[in-house]
């Protein structure tokens, strides 16, 4: 069988090669996913260590009432409904310790419901 090099087949070959390259590119790893449980009146875990510039996704799950998380200094906020799950993308752009608070009023201990991010180099 003789291979015929027509313009459409060349285009298709280039397209497949490009897609393979994109998939295997070292910079294209999907962000690390970190599961966080929200319940009255705490987050589990209560503290997480991240690397500066590393994209992560917080997978926030509520096991009781609606909750939320807000890191005011990082401009990050997300809310989760009763018994639901939401994903919050964070790429910290500076090092330090950042305390996030529950941003949906959930009862008498709401003010003490915090999640601490330690961002290191």
């Amino acid at each position: 069988m003789k291979l015929k090099l027509s313009p459409p087949s060349i285009f298709a070959a280039i397209l497949v090669a490009a897609l393979l390259l994109i998939q295997n590119s070292p910079g294209q790893h999907s962000p690390r996913r970190i599961a966080v449980i929200a319940k009255r009146f705490q987050f589990e875990p209560a503290a997480i260590t991240l690397k500066k510039g590393e994209p992560v996704v917080l997978v926030l799950t509520s096991v009781d009432v609606p909750h939320g998380i807000r890191f005011r200094e990082l401009g990050v906020e997300g809310k989760v409904g009763k018994g639901g799950t939401t994903e919050i993308a964070i790429t910290p752009d500076r090092t330090g310790t950042f305390v996030g608070h529950c941003s949906v009023f959930c009862g008498s201990g709401h003010g003490e419901m915090t999640l601490t991010l330690h961002v290191v180099e």
């Binding site: 201990g109 709401h110 003010g111 915090t114």
Partner: peptide
């Protein structure tokens, strides 16, 4: 008083 019921930030 609302200390601990609301966060300082709020």
């Amino acid at each position: 008083g609302s200390k601990k019921t609301l966060s300082d930030d709020e």
